[in-house]
Design a protein around this nucleic acid. Structure first.
Length: 555
RNA sequence: CGGGGCGUAGCGCAGCCUGGUUUAGCGCACCUGCCUUGGGAGCAGGGGGUCGGAGGUUCAAAUCCUCUCGCCCCGACCA
């Protein structure tokens, strides 16, 4: 491809609206343009990258026997109503009516539709297993689109669905996907982790996410470098660092106007880990107390799994229910249900005395209060691994893929049954597996860039090589450029030739920005000796090569 | 949805507080010509603006007031 024939609108300045590195570089290097919040146009270069990624996706999906198909983006409401998601999902679903006033929605994922198809086409155990996939647009009315292409309202997704006769079959399909995903992300040149994740509203028991490290990510994962434990922070277990057990006797201490752990901790000259934070929550079954150690944060999602829906109490409710102001609540002498973090089981602590301007010192769990013990704290860097006790590490990541065991969550309500060998009707056991190609591209940029621009991994670069004829008015330069362009193209190397009548500096800057892995620089001085330079975008190292040998060197 | 910020030429910004002196300005980009060709050159000339929109205050509004739309960031949410 000739640069002059391709729309590559590079920007010299940093667009004011972009913050994430991948976002800035995709805009500056002419890969994308924004239409509206969370809606992006893929320019020619951007499309080429997505196509490269999709090709890898197809190869690896096909390799595990998955079959590609395409499904509508516009769905009738009925099928979503049958699984209940029409009602469970809120504003995030784009809904509309057709001319006949029928309720419709835009597909945010395709479990319903794939299962609808399975209902009609799978009848016998002989038809199983099946893995169906598509690479298709999804639409979600995101509350907050952000970070360029990382969180958009319309995005491409490779989504596959497995249909098996039993749990063993699902396990095989799940494992096949996990393996394929490892290959896909490795081939795309990404650093990534497979971590345990919260199945959430997708249903089912087991789920993993593929996470690619980047400060632009929205998630955090907890990693153990010793035993390999890896989990999304939303469910990661950890053992907080142990503290010494004090031999305080129970006493009430005057702590005037000292409410937060930080204030009391400074006032009493005691580290926060010797405190118990007592938090009043209102659940559907009434008020309860949650206790975490002073140096910890209460983990809403973990607690949610134990007590269901809840919210924090308002100031007035605290007063009404506990008879004391927030800031002086302690776990003693309540009739409320108490959920406490595991690590509080041992030790002697300080907490509110349930009395204005007083805290209680010498609180002994089990003696001064009774609680249900659970891991309800947010894992922290330096906590110990719950499996092997080694120190845990926390990393910010981009979710680039996920795999879910759905079980019968969709096959039961939609009646996707098959007949087994004995003629018994059984529900199909399903799995669902997603990958976001745009997030792969963004993660690749996040992990591979320098001050000059993008440095694409070879496998997903829009072109393999960029030719830079520095002086377009020099006939010899042109001759060599054209010859190399032709020779390389014939060898199936994808070449971008910067044939614009621009100064050398402009071509160098744009080439670095765009990030094609190899550059062939054709300058007049080197030509006199029959040489051109081949430069590595990543290392910036250039080697002089005879014109005739360029093809050989690059192949 | 809560909090914050920003909308002035294709991009990046100044002007706004303290209304008039601006025919709304600067850099880059763009067009024409000359010149130049190894890291975003130089000179000369030129085109491009409903100052996000609506309403209001005023003799006079980019500037003050009200409403509204859009975009970004933090949080909540994220099937």
């Amino acid at each position: 491809m000739r640069f002059s024939k391709m729309l590559i609108p590079t920007l010299r300045e940093i667009p004011a609206d972009a913050e994430a590195i991948s976002h800035i570089l995709m805009l500056r290097a002419g890969y994308i343009r924004q239409l509206a919040a969370g809606l992006y146009i893929n320019l020619p270069l951007g499309s080429k990258v997505i196509e490269k990624i999709n090709k890898i996706l197809r190869e690896e999906m096909n390799a595990i026997g998955a079959q590609e198909m395409t499904l509508p983006v516009l769905h009738p409401a009925e099928v979503w109503q049958e699984t209940g998601r029409w009602y469970e999902i809120g504003d995030e679903m784009f809904r509309l009516k057709d001319r006949g006033d029928r309720d419709m929605c835009l597909g945010m994922t395709h479990e319903e539709i794939m299962t609808w198809l399975a209902v009609r086409e799978i009848r016998s155990y002989r038809d199983l297993p099946q893995v169906w996939y598509q690479i298709q647009t999804k639409l979600r009315d995101e509350a907050r689109p952000k970070s360029g292409v990382l969180r958009t309202r319309e995005f491409l997704m490779k989504d596959s669905y497995s249909f098996d006769a039993d749990e063993d079959g699902l396990e095989r399909s799940y494992q096949l996907h996990a393996d394929a995903y490892h290959k896909i992300f490795s081939r795309c040149g990404l650093k990534f982790y497979m971590v345990e994740s919260d199945p959430g509203m997708m249903g089912g028991a087991t789920a993993h996410e593929f996470m690619s490290p980047s400060p632009a990510g929205e998630d955090e994962v907890v990693l153990c470098t010793s035993c390999g434990y890896a989990a999304n922070i939303e469910l990661a277990l950890s053992i907080p660092k142990k503290i010494g057990i004090m031999d305080w006797n129970f006493e009430e201490v005057h702590t005037p106007e000292k409410r937060t752990v930080e204030e009391v901790s400074n006032f009493l000259k005691l580290r926060p880990e010797y405190f118990i934070k007592s938090i009043l929550l209102i659940s559907d079954n009434g008020p309860l107390l949650a206790l975490v150690r002073g140096d910890q944060e209460l983990h809403e999602k973990k607690l949610n799994r134990i007590i269901g829906k809840h919210r924090s109490a308002q100031k007035k409710e605290v007063k009404d229910i506990l008879g004391v102001e927030a800031g002086f609540i302690g776990p003693m002498n309540h009739k409320l249900r108490i959920i406490a973090d595991m690590c509080l089981k041992e030790g002697v602590y300080v907490s509110g005395a349930n009395k204005q301007h007083y805290h209680a010192k010498g609180i002994r769990p089990g003696k001064d209060f009774i609680a249900e013990w659970h891991d309800i704290h947010v894992a922290k860097e330096g906590d110990s691994c719950s499996k092997c006790n080694a120190a845990l590490k926390i990393e910010r990541v981009i979710e680039i893929g996920n795999i879910f065991k759905l079980g019968t969550k969709y096959s039961l309500p939609l009646k996707a049954f098959y007949l087994d060998e004995k003629g018994l009707e059984k529900p199909i056991i399903m799995g669902s597996y997603g990958i976001g190609p745009a997030r792969i591209a963004a993660a690749a940029i996040e992990q591979n860039n320098d001050k000059d621009g993008i440095i694409w991994p070879k496998s997903i670069a829009p072109f393999d090589v960029e030719i830079l004829p520095l002086n377009m008015k020099d006939v010899k330069t042109l001759d060599i450029a054209e010859k190399l362009y032709k020779d390389l193209t014939e060898k199936d190397i994808e070449v971008l030739m910067d044939d614009r009548d621009e100064r050398a500096g402009v071509k160098f800057k744009d080439a670095d920005l765009i990030g094609i892995p190899a550059q062939i620089i054709i300058g007049e001085k080197n030509i006199k000796e029959g040489l051109v330079e081949i430069k590595d975008r990543r290392t910036k190292e250039a080697v002089k090569v005879k014109v005739e040998e360029v093809v050989k060197v690059l192949c």
